[in-house]
Design a protein around this nucleic acid. Sequence first.
DNA 1: ACAAAAGTGTTAATCTTACACCCATGT
DNA 2: ACATGGGTGTAAGATTAACACTTTTGT
Lengths: 230, 230
Amino acid sequence: MEIVQNIKVAVDAIVFGYSHNQLHILLIKQKFGELKNQWALVGGFVKDSETLQDAVNRELQEETGIEVSYLEQLYTFGDNIHRDPRFRVITVAYFALVNSTTLTPTPNTDAEEAQWFSIKNLPPLAFDHKEIIDVAYKRLQNKLTYQPIGFDLLPQEFLFSDLENLYCTILEKEIDRRNFRKKILSFGVIEETEIFSSKKSGRPAKLFKFNYQKYKDLIKEGFLFEIKFA
Amino acid sequence: MEIVQNIKVAVDAIVFGYSHNQLHILLIKQKFGELKNQWALVGGFVKDSETLQDAVNRELQEETGIEVSYLEQLYTFGDNIHRDPRFRVITVAYFALVNSTTLTPTPNTDAEEAQWFSIKNLPPLAFDHKEIIDVAYKRLQNKLTYQPIGFDLLPQEFLFSDLENLYCTILEKEIDRRNFRKKILSFGVIEETEIFSSKKSGRPAKLFKFNYQKYKDLIKEGFLFEIKFA
DNA sequence: ACAAAAGTGTTAATCTTACACCCATGT
DNA sequence: ACATGGGTGTAAGATTAACACTTTTGT
């Protein structure tokens, strides 16, 4: 059986980061070639003998050197036949999160430049990458309410106020501070540490951390993480 | 820029149907060729100049003649490099529902046979199609609890008991009949009709229908469809 | 002493759960 | 008259939502 088909398969990663109370996205700029001077998502063509996942990880490594803390397939964009004007390309988009500590992208080749952009202030983007980001952002907003992925955007030890702020910022809503804390703590997957942070002003605050093991155990017993208000 | 890549792109549809209080899946069997005598999902290779959606619809039409009432992209399977032993194929899987009334598949070519199988009693399947079905089934179970897609598995006018049964069957749980009815009716998206069904035995029951327009309006106002118990 | 952020409890309202008997029809 | 499935309400318990003052630190 001979199949004649001329469709290329790419992967793209929408990498979210969070710092200074702002949600960021990682973009790269090719210095040469077709995409010269256009900002685009991290990504590229899949090799014949690598998995899709491997392709994303390879591109992330090559183009930014960043290690993500969460990665999942988002959606496959292939309904706009001319999304790449050169030839037919479908792209399998991946949704990724990094904790803000890992924040400095360093591309492996000097043909590229990698940089964080606030989601509120994105540059013009190549292809349909803006649409892809929109889909990813919605996924992030949704997921935040039913999976503890906020912690993948924070350092391992974080302030409760940072967590709260992250929810406010990403969901674009006000949250009652007391109810939020009560709810989150009631899950029993967040632990106090002995460490206090000394911010510039105000009362020092305890640092908390997410107990991933505990979460996995609870899940097995049918536990549901869910943040409804906000 | 020349890209050398030898990956073929296919689409597959996991088509769910519901009848006789059982969940069914639509499968086809090629009478000739590589897949001779193996049951498989509806699907095939994407043409260079058609969208992924069009490809699924075309395959559904060609192989079964069935019209689906709900279709959405499920997942792209491309991490098992040898999922097709012939060459590298990634498949974009689509999740589809049909209301039970449309239940008779009639393949357009006589090289194929199409048939409904109870999900509890599937034949051996080609490639990784069993895994794909597992993913689709989980999606169905999840989605049932937060989107009114059960109605896409029922005829336009249905008995409350059918709806209830559908939930029990698919979620594999017991449901309190009274609480279920109360909850569903409280959403205000289901309407009584004037028609009564006359089943073989028991008190005749009102038929209900789902008001899709009403649902869309409510969604805009921030309404959430959610069936938690069960 | 004051500015800035952290920490903390109670109450009313709403939603969820558990539960059992009568009703309308066909045989 | 009985078998079959349809239809209905209430009360206890759990969850959510609304709300404001005190504490600790740095300046």
